[in-house]
Design a protein around this nucleic acid. Sequence first.
DNA 1: CGGTTTGAGGATGTATACAGAACGGAGCTG
DNA 2: CAGCTCCGTTCTGTATACATCCTCAAACCG
Lengths: 247, 247
Amino acid sequence: MQHNEASQESQTGRALLALRELLLTGQFSPGEHLSELQLVSRLGVSRTPVRQALNRLAHEGLLEAARFNRFRVREFTMRDVWDAIELRGVLEGTAARLAAERLSNTGELDEIRELQTRMDAITHTTVDTFGLYMDLNEAFHAALIGLAKSAMLFRSIEHVKTLPFASPSALVFARSKLPRAAEMIIVGQEQHHAILDAVEHRQGTRAEALAREHALLSRRNLEMALTDERIRDCVPGASLILVGSDR
Amino acid sequence: MQHNEASQESQTGRALLALRELLLTGQFSPGEHLSELQLVSRLGVSRTPVRQALNRLAHEGLLEAARFNRFRVREFTMRDVWDAIELRGVLEGTAARLAAERLSNTGELDEIRELQTRMDAITHTTVDTFGLYMDLNEAFHAALIGLAKSAMLFRSIEHVKTLPFASPSALVFARSKLPRAAEMIIVGQEQHHAILDAVEHRQGTRAEALAREHALLSRRNLEMALTDERIRDCVPGASLILVGSDR
DNA sequence: CGGTTTGAGGATGTATACAGAACGGAGCTG
DNA sequence: CAGCTCCGTTCTGTATACATCCTCAAACCG
């Protein structure tokens, strides 16, 4: 991770983590106004860190600015969720294309190949291997974005991923409970292989299309998780998603 | 604009505008650390608004977080500039594609057609018409993004455009002094027409490719502006761009 | 003379007091 | 009874005091 995320060592970090947790676990209703003073007593820190956390979460997109400098809990539609995932697909597609176009020598692929190999080694999924797979998957995507060699693109993807359900790790808890989770991993692995093949052979357009399609796998996973009542609550921020207007 | 930009009515707004102005006019060196107390005396407001402005500008990308919670003036390479423009092209291309895919009836194009017509009416460029053209151009792009009907995409494009040279309005002062400015407008208008034609006929892929190419026009303009010593300083934030490492 | 320590200065983190604005309800008035 | 006014409550904006930590350089010790 780029941001050290201002961990628990500071009041601001505590306030940020705690408030984000409250939001993602549905402790507030969408559209609700947040009062600094209420949060002071609820989070146990003074107004200064609370303000900073509010601002930060507004940048992340979980809150939105309301009239008279207040903050309101953001409400998402299913369309927002799909659009966020599609947008991530577009950006990761661009990363794959740039990786192909800017590859100087195939040795640059060694690191990501190593991750690939380790993921291939996970043939069946247990509780333990799922966490490992998610970590490797995240590292794989990060490595691909690194190969694009574009600080601007990196920044933009990080921004999109701050939205809870847009991040591929959104399903870290939910996915393991999904039926056909193993099949999803097999399909995902096949796509990873294809993307790397395209990058290695400088096939920018192919790499872009594959990476876009790969993001839609997240969408299918999320779709199943959100429609399954038993595991819907495992998805962070699910309570902020308005169920109606399903496109 | 979405943000009301916290205009001069508040100390925070004043501090933000003033500090951004200082940065964009090259009053600080790239990599320089900014001290809150120094800014207090320089901007004439207390630490609280200064801190808020610093945080905001870090989100915008003009500053970056340094060790021990300090802020450093960001340094950009030419590659960053090109990447930012390419990224804007990718996102506007996505907007054009979505606009084509999601067009429900051609009546939705009335507003943007109106802008188009008004831009066509500007046949030759004087000092007056240039400002008008830039305004219309910005409105045209905003309308196109609106047609994509994606709040997520809108948010992402706004984020990218906070970088001074990534915004199409970066050249509002410089472009009028460029040679062959009239030709650029003609070419740009042709591309606008083609994009609208593609959107109207639901040609998503064509619209996307055209919009990407259209962003490269900004790149050519910026390239000329930055290499011309006489007008380089008209580009906001030019002093933050490292001249070496030209890709 | 080189390395270490220690102190002053200055930086940010945090809490809080005060001021001004918005909101909401009670009471007044037509 | 409806609508308006007014005032208390509560909110945010701002400045600032204090605590803590980093920095840097001078002085000290081996």
